[in-house]
Structures are given as structure tokens and as C-alpha cells.
Design a protein around this nucleic acid. Sequence first.
RNA 1: CCAGUCGGCCGGGCGGCCGCUGCCCGUUUGCGGGUGGAGGAAAGUCCGGGCUCCAUGGAGAAACGGUGGCGGCUAACGGCCGCCGGGGGCGACCCCAGGGAAAGUGCCACAGAAAACAGACCGCCGGGGCGUGCUCCGGCAAGGGUGAAAAGGUGCGGCAAGAGCGCACCGCGUUGCCGGCAACGGCAAUGGCAGGGCAAACCCCGCCGGGAGCAAGACCGAAUAGGGGCAGCGCGCGACGGGCAACCGUCGCAGGGGUCUCCGCCCCGGCUGCCCGGGUUGGUUGCACGAGAUCCGUCGCGAGGCGGAUCCCAGAGGAAUGGCCGCCACGUCGGCGCCUUCGGGCGCAGGCCAUACAGAACCCGGCUUACAGGCCGACUGGACCU
Length: 139
Amino acid sequence: MGPIENEQGCAVRKGAPPFRFESLKKRSDFKAASVGFRFSTPGFTLLRKPGVGDDGIVRYGLTVTRKVGNAVIRNRIRRRLRAAIRALAQRHEGPAMDIVVLARASLLTLPFSSIEADLARAVAALGARPAAGPARKPS
RNA sequence: CCAGUCGGCCGGGCGGCCGCUGCCCGUUUGCGGGUGGAGGAAAGUCCGGGCUCCAUGGAGAAACGGUGGCGGCUAACGGCCGCCGGGGGCGACCCCAGGGAAAGUGCCACAGAAAACAGACCGCCGGGGCGUGCUCCGGCAAGGGUGAAAAGGUGCGGCAAGAGCGCACCGCGUUGCCGGCAACGGCAAUGGCAGGGCAAACCCCGCCGGGAGCAAGACCGAAUAGGGGCAGCGCGCGACGGGCAACCGUCGCAGGGGUCUCCGCCCCGGCUGCCCGGGUUGGUUGCACGAGAUCCGUCGCGAGGCGGAUCCCAGAGGAAUGGCCGCCACGUCGGCGCCUUCGGGCGCAGGCCAUACAGAACCCGGCUUACAGGCCGACUGGACCU
């Protein structure tokens, strides 16, 4: 893969090193993402935190609620998601941003290849939206 | 070989690609290399400890909570081991909240005459009466019936009929002797039977218990705003309130600033320096050498004790210990062939699934619950062969 312009024509990164992927750790980040754009797939819902991310870094958070299953199931889902995100990071070119993955129970049995494909699709779709996030009524 | 009882153990393996994390080494500070990295229940959070903080002069009592055969083990326990008693099983073995009902209170539905100072429905026996199968009086509690339970059970004698009324055996109480550390057991004598059940109803008795928890606790600690103390300099007037005072608060006028001037509006009324306390995010620690693991010896029936040697064996923090793929084992399904005690077993090729329960969060000892499949050992009952 070569450094190219992405479809939106923003953030051209010729010859830049690959994106670094870090995990979100603060509760406030998760809450901020909950008001951003969403993209749903059979296995999960992807949220994008409003705002321009730090250059060259995509931060991701995983939300796997107790409703999904017990600790063993939740951990396995987290591991599969991390593995898929890591694979995606190798070829990510889109804008820097913060995302949160809301997991569903089907992630346990869904084929790994389809999780990867859905994740790439969802990240591309959210990367194309304006960074400021959706217009919301001021509360 | 079949059926069963008890105890212990395992609970995937190999390879490839790509990753996470603790420690060590190197380093061009990007990273590279080496090495370690979930469980028997890590679970439920039900007990017991260590550790930490708080409270506490010592001892005791009350209250509350827990616990309950006896002896031992243990740091401790509601745990474990051994034994005793009761119950179940042909047996190996299993089950028991197993102190006290002659301290008191309470409850015992339905049925039944009567459910606890006993009593008499049907009955049985004797006597009186008359209308001769009913009634009255008295005796009895064996039989019937009710019930979970009705003042021991069986048999013989006895009697008007009966009854521990008498006797034998069994059960029970008391006393004595013997065995045992003890729970308790054995034997003998004796009493003719004392006494309903429920204490997982209150209660009584013995024993144990201060509270909260690693988000315990300790250390480091910015920036901004705000709080307190001290020192120096400064400190317009008036009114009101508080105060011994220093001083503080409110209001008005004057002053300064936004804004060069006026008006209006808003803001400020101390400044500087040093110190203190509190404290959000964060970092370090507690936090991985311990009632530690493995092996050996020794004492003990055993739980376990003692001694020696060797070893270091997870430390995350939106939470690492893995993701994907291939092969194999195990399992399972039907097919074919052979054997068979007709339950099944073995062999061959093939299809399917790709493992159950479940993820450390300060650490240990237990308990309880969950668990696909499999292995080992000891023992019991039975069948067959020699």
C-alpha cells in the first residue's frame, strides 16, 4: 500500500509512518463518543468521538456490557476485536480519530474475516463524516 | 466379565504467521534479544486467618450474632481426622443441626370420645328395673375406630370382665461394679413404668466473637481558583450591626478600572513576600519469599507434626496471559467384516464437532456450587473358567 490521498481529500499523509493505535482509558472519552456519529453492523456498533484526533493516532475503546455474557465470553470478544483492530491498523490511512466499539454477543461466533471487513467498512464510513460530529441541540 | 462403593488425577497436543505484558540484557531511545505469564474450581463471596486503619486502661457483665456428641489436628474455622450414638443398605459404604423437654412460656391443623391436672364413642363385665332389648347404677381399658402421635411391646397366667395384677424375654428408669481420656459400652441388682411430640418456636446451658476493609493504608504532588497564619508597606468619610479591643460585615458618597471625556452600566477595593492546611487528575508504594512449591526421611490409624535438600513459580489496571490457520489425538454418527456371555468389543475406510464449567485483581486455609470427556487405585456383591 502506498501513501495516497483518501477519498475525502483531507489529511494527505505522503510517506508518513503507519497510524499508531492506542486504547481509550478515561470514562469521559467514552461518554464523549456516545454523542458522535454511529455505524452499525451485525456484530457491533461503532461510535466516533466528535473532534479532530491527534495526528497519526487512532484511539479505540471497547465496550462489552454484562448483557453480552460472562467474563470469559466478554474477554474473548475483547480479544477478537483487538486482533481485528490491529490488522486494520496496518493499512489505515483515514483521518486520526477516537472510536468506541459497542460489542454484541454475535462477535463470539461470527467469522473473523467478516468482523475485519465490517470494521474496515465502519471506520471508513465514520472517517468520511465531518469531524465536528452531528449537530445537536445545546442542552 | 457384569453391577456397585470410595478415593485420587487429567481436563487437549504439535506447528506456522501476527500480537499483549512483568523482569533481565543490549541499544542508534525507534526498538531488538532472552525469559516468565490463569484455575481446579481463578466462580458464589458463605466461614476462618494474615495484613492495614479506627476504637480501646485492665477484668467482667448485659445485649446481639454465631456455634453445639466425644477426643484430636490447625494460625483459626461453621473445616479436617479418628471414635461413639441413631438411621439406611446383602455388602463395600452412606446419611444425621446428634446439648437441655423432672426451669418456664408457647404450639400440636384435620380426624377423633379424648391431644396432656388424661379421658370413655363403639365396646366388655356385674347388679337393679321393666314393656326382653332397652334403660339406670357400678367396674374395666384388653379389643374396635381416629390420628404423625393415645400412660411400653410379645407371650403365658390371672379375673365377673380386665389391668405390670403376677411371671418370662425385650424396651425404659435408678443404683452398683467393670472397660474407656471421653462421648459411651458391658454386666448385675432393682423399680413395675417414672414418661407425649416440637428446642430448624421462644428459651436455658457451654464455647467463640470490638468495628471496617487493599477503593484498607502510606508517600510524592503540579497549574488555576479559593481558604488560613505571620511580616512589611498602605489603610478617605458617614451610617447601621457584631466585638473588651484589634478588627469584621452591610449600605451610601468619594476613588480606581473596562473607556480619551461626560452620563449610564459592570467590575475592584488592599499590595508584596514567606509559610501552613485542604485537595481534583496523576505517579509511587502496599504487591508477589509465602501458614510457598517439589522431593526425601521420620513420628502418627489418620487429619497432620518435625527434619533435610532443591527451587523462585502471573502481577494486569477500560484490566495483559492471546488472535487466525493447518495437522493430530480424544469423542461421536451410521456402513462393512470378524468375535460375542447378545450388554457389547475389535479392525477397516468415511462424515461431523473442533471442546465442558469457567478468567487472577492484597494474600492464604476451607466450604458450597458448576463441569463435555477421560484415566488410575482400593474395596463390595454376583456370574463363568481353571
